[in-house]
Design a protein around this nucleic acid. Structure first.
Length: 846
RNA sequence: GCGGGCGUGAUGGAAUGGUAGACAUACCAGACUUAAAAUCUGUUGGGGCGUAGCCCCGUGUGGGUUCGAGUCCCACCGCCCGCACCA
């Protein structure tokens, strides 16, 4: 018997699948369909272990569903627009398109040896004009439906490079290349009206039964529906046109604890004041330093400046409150102005403490709370006694208090109750080259008009330079010039391109008809949509998934998707990352020097013998050099080993740490299975314990199937280890062992398809294992005749008894009470309580 | 800062509120071998005792609910993800 040689087996079976067209997805009215999709990759040029894990999981589902009789669609494409291509262009002088397509070729070549059951005939890249042209057509349709508009929005501005920076390019408030402190600047930008769908996107989450609760919860909080009071403070000594400051609050019940009014540095009043007051201008300029992310704003030191303006409290016109400009107030949420109640809001508390503003409690503090060191913030459901309530000193829950306050204010003519959402419209403009051009034309007479559909795609010009920062489309000599599609006069193209999230918000629909000359084709979309199982990283829990949900709705409104597809992903699974230890040594100046895993052996750098410091498990990243290249693993052990390893041990939703010993172990196990199959192939004759082995086999069918169905691939793998052990130990006859081995090969086939095909053909299975129907467990073989029940005394396990499976509860109780350990513990007395959970446990309470 | 998640032996992990540690890794011991590798077999949460057995402790920390908690609730600690221009 020769050795287990994946390098011989794997290409052979991949060729066999190709020849047979095993994975070509076809519309088949006679079969139920199943659409499994993994989040498509960005073509960085190298696949990494995270890809291997993601696509292997999808492949397990795809192959399993195919065996179960579904017509499966399992496609692959490339999320190909984005900044890295432009960065490469700047650094290496290559064109972003050339760089991207080269990377795609490289990655496809790295991916194919994995033996994924992908229908490669449907492959596309989002930077293909055939794809983004259809996206432009949809953009125009969305304009027609009023889902697109322009408005000013704030961007990160690098004052040295004179360019817009992505959040990622802002490091500690400074531009990543220039190092200059970033400023916030307003630009006119394109927006999708996702906020029209706030309520709908929120409510529809309830119907997504096969999405993780955590993702739905994150989306709910992101959409952020709230009920509150909007009202105005009247100002004293404020400039003309600012005699009122509109405020939105979700806690109007704390209005009697107001101690100041805060406005955003971008509030119209602040902007008016800074134009006339150099001190205020200096302060707001200070506030505008740093990046635009909410994180940067919220974690910055809380700064405030008294404007000198005062407002009157709505319930007591003699009560005056100061108006502060504060850097933590967002212009994007509510009205850009708040009232501060330091006694019951921690952030207001810290602000009031810093600027020596009064702290006035509205309700009695909680037991043990110290109002001098922190705010008392009751839960919505918590009952509180109001001591300074305008609506009566009552005990009620916080939520009731809010509603009472809104009612009271409305009936007294102070504002009105409103519902607000935190969700903002989707700004899709990017001042960059390598993206889908926004198909719009600026005409002096007609204004901003969409490009005519017959002129699509608006293709990116190839002749561009990246020798200076900024958008090359802006400085291209001719591309911008065009004729107005409405009046024919000379006009100019929009040079903003689309956010790459737009590209990834509808690719799932495009896979159903990837070569069509319309965005989708009705009958294909009808047949294949929705995606039955979507798999990807938890980092996409909010933005990508929310945008896709919005886009599917927009596509339905514009006639590109059926109604049923407005929630495009029926089931979602979020998988964890692949991590690895980090190895580092220090150079002469004590700076860290990172080492690749293959350069390290026994805690020492192979080349120098220098001992390494080991930092436990971290996300694989190039800069930390803790990456394992799947290509090396496949070359050394084969694809089946890599696939088996990433499915073993760790639950799919959790991070998995790559270890060399784990990969070695996976390889050894597959070799063992292969040898067992070889042994069985040459065996004949009868043995003993056939029934026992068959029971183990049926139990494995049941357990492995359950594991796959519930995304418990690690437990399926464990059950397959158990079955391998059972077959190995069994003395059963040759036919039975062969039968068990064939079933094991089938159960393993979604995970290790090449080895499974090899065993299948070796033991005389019919056709390809990929085409064989999934085995069914015989229910009769799963039932045990007797069960062992643990006996607990006062909740602690003390003994156990074996009873027939169907023994009535009363008889089990009798047996339990007669049991030695129980009799001894009772010491002649009677138990306080006797709990018998049939088939589970007995608990005697004394 | 805000939102979400996770935490179990030396290690990865298993466990519809019901025998904690399945299955693996590592270690140790044995078989085979001149030897090593490979392979096969077995042991292994910690502590204790009168050691065929029995007892105590044990799922990040501290409380709570329950006949019974790794699992549910509250607080805390640590780590991870997201925060709207990274993909």
């Amino acid at each position: 018997m020769s050795r287990f040689e994946p390098r011989e087996i794997e290409p052979k079976w991949q060729a066999a699948w190709d020849t047979a067209g095993t994975f070509t997805a076809t519309r088949d009215a006679a079969k139920p369909k199943y659409y499994v999709l993994e989040m498509f990759p960005y073509p960085s040029g190298r696949i990494h272990m995270g890809h291997v894990r993601n696509y292997t999981m999808g492949d397990v589902v795809a192959r399993y569903k195919s065996s179960c009789g579904f017509s499966v669609l399992h496609p692959m494409g490339w999320d190909a627009f984005g900044m890295p291509a432009e960065n490469a262009a700047m650094e290496k002088g290559t064109h972003p398109g050339d760089w991207t397509y080269k990377n795609i070729d490289d990655m496809r070549a790295q991916m194919k040896p994995l033996g994924l059951s992908i229908d490669w005939s449907r492959e596309f890249a989002t930077c293909d004009p055939e794809y983004y042209g259809q996206q432009q057509a949809m953009f125009i349709d969305m304009m027609d439906k009023g889902l697109v508009y322009r408005k000013n929005a704030t961007v990160n501005w690098d004052p040295v490079d004179m360019t817009v920076l992505a959040n990622e390019q802002v490091i500690d408030g400074c531009g990543w290349r220039s190092g200059a402190p970033v400023e916030r600047r307003d630009l006119t930008q394109w927006f999708f009206k996702i906020s029209d769908f706030s309520e709908e996107l929120l409510d529809a989450l309830d119907g997504l039964d096969n999405w993780p609760d955590k993702v739905k919860l994150m989306q709910r909080n992101w959409i952020g529906k709230s009920r509150g009071l909007q009202f105005a403070f009247s100002t004293i000594d404020a400039p003309d046109g600012h005699d009122r400051i509109e405020v939105y609050t979700t806690r109007p019940d704390t209005l009697m604890g107001a101690s100041f009014v805060g406005i955003s540095p971008d509030h119209p009043l602040a902007k008016h004041l800074e134009a006339h007051n150099p001190d205020i201008a200096a302060f707001t300029a200070e506030c505008r330093k740093g990046g635009t992310t909410e994180e940067a704003i919220e974690t910055a030191e809380k700064l405030g400046m008294d404007t000198g303006i005062r407002v009157r409290h709505p319930f007591d016109t003699a009560w005056e409150l100061p108006v502060y400009i504060a850097n933590f107030i967002l212009m994007d949420y509510g009205t850009g102005a708040i009232f501060g109640c330091p006694a019951h809001d921690q952030r207001d508390f810290e602000f009031a403490s810093k600027y020596k503003l009064p702290i006035t409690p509205v309700f009695e503090p909680a037991e043990g709370a110290d109002p001098l060191t922190e705010a008392y913030v009751p839960l919505k459901t918590e009952k509180v006694r109001y001591v300074r309530s305008f609506a009566g000193d009552e005990i009620q829950t916080g939520e009731d208090g809010v509603n009472t306050a809104i009612d009271f204010c409305e009936s007294n003519g102070i504002g009105h109750g409103v519902t607000k959402f935190r969700l903002r419209d989707w700004g899709l403009s990017r001042q960059r080259y390598w993206g889908c051009p926004i198909p719009v034309i600026h005409c002096e007479t007609c204004g901003v008009v969409p490009e005519a559909k017959e002129n699509l795609p608006v293709e990116l010009p190839k002749d561009v330079t990246f020798d200076k920062p900024g958008n090359p489309l802006d400085r291209h000599p001719t591309w911008r010039n065009c004729a107005c599609p409405t009046c024919g006069a000379d006009a100019q193209r929009e040079t903003d391109t689309m956010d790459t999230f737009v590209d990834s918000s509808w690719y799932y629909a495009r896979f159903t008809a990837p070569r069509a000359t319309t965005p989708t084709v009705a009958e294909d979309a009808d047949y294949w949509m929705n995606v039955d199982q979507y798999i990807g990283g938890i980092e996409h829990a909010i933005l990508h998934l929310l945008y896709s949900r919005f886009f599917a709705r927009a596509m339905h409104l514009t006639g590109h998707l059926p109604k049923k597809a407005i929630e495009p992903f029926d089931a979602l699974f979020t998988q964890g990352m692949v991590t690895h230890e980090i190895y580092l040594t220090r150079d002469e100046s004590n700076r860290p020097v990172y080492h690749l895993p293959e350069e390290v052996e026994d805690g020492k750098v192979k080349a120098t013998g220098e001992p390494v410091q080991v930092i436990p498990s971290a996300k694989m990243s190039k800069s930390k050099k803790n990456v394992v290249d799947p290509v090396n693993i496949i070359n050394a052990y084969g694809a089946d080993t890599a696939r088996w390893f990433v499915l073993s041990d760790s639950p799919p939703e959790r991070d998995v740490e790559w270890t060399a010993s784990g990969a070695e172990a996976a390889y050894k196990h597959l070799g063992r299975v292969w040898r067992m199959a070889g042994d069985i192939a040459s065996q004949t004759g009868n043995g003993e314990g056939d029934d026992e082995l068959l029971r183990a086999m049926h139990k494995a069918i049941h357990d492995v199937t359950m594991g796959i169905e519930s995304f418990g691939f690690n437990t399926s793998v464990a059950k397959l280890y158990a079955l391998a052990n059972a077959i190995q130990k069994s003395k059963a006859g040759a036919d039975t062992r062969r039968q068990a081995m064939l079933v094991m090969a089938q159960l393993m086939s979604p995970m290790t398809p090449h080895l499974s095909e090899e065993i299948w053909s070796l033991l005389g299975g019919e056709g390809l294992i990929a085409d064989a129907p999934w085995p069914k467990a015989d229910a009769a073989m799963l039932v045990e005749d007797t069960v062992t029940l643990p006996i607990q005394i006062n909740g602690k396990r003390r003994s156990e008894i074996s009873v027939p499976k169907d023994m009535p509860k009363e008889e089990v109780e009798k047996l339990a009470l007669a049991h030695d350990a129980v009799v001894k513990a009772l010491n002649g007395g009677a138990p306080k309580k006797l709990i018998v959970v049939p088939g589970r446990i007995i608990n005697v309470v004394i």
